[in-house]
């Protein structure tokens, strides 16, 4: 199995599978509520014109996360 890395390093167009969250407290709860639980497939869709935030496809919705949050979600690349 390949090593996991922070979500923001997933390239636009790539899919990843959530392996763990390093966030604690409220941020963790909010990320969980978005559906970012272990095993969830996340697609990196696009960067904003200024590079941050990045929009992700999470369970059918497009959700933009700032680097501050997406660096607390870890994924491994999914070969689709």
């Amino acid at each position: 199995m390949t090593k996991d890395f922070p979500l923001y390093r997933l390239h636009p167009g790539q899919n990843g599978i959530v392996t763990r969250l390093s966030a604690e407290g409220l941020t963790r709860r909010r990320l969980l509520d978005l559906g970012l639980v272990v095993g969830t497939v996340v697609e990196s869709i696009r960067k904003s014109p200024l590079g941050d935030p990045i929009a992700y496809g999470i369970r059918g919705a497009v959700i933009a996360l700032r680097k501050e949050e997406s660096s607390q979600v870890f994924v491994r690349a999914k070969n689709s």
Binding site: V62, I63, A64, R66
Partner: peptide
Amino acid sequence: IPSSFTLELP
């Protein structure tokens, strides 16, 4: 510092 933020693009 800015608090955590998520934005849906409906």
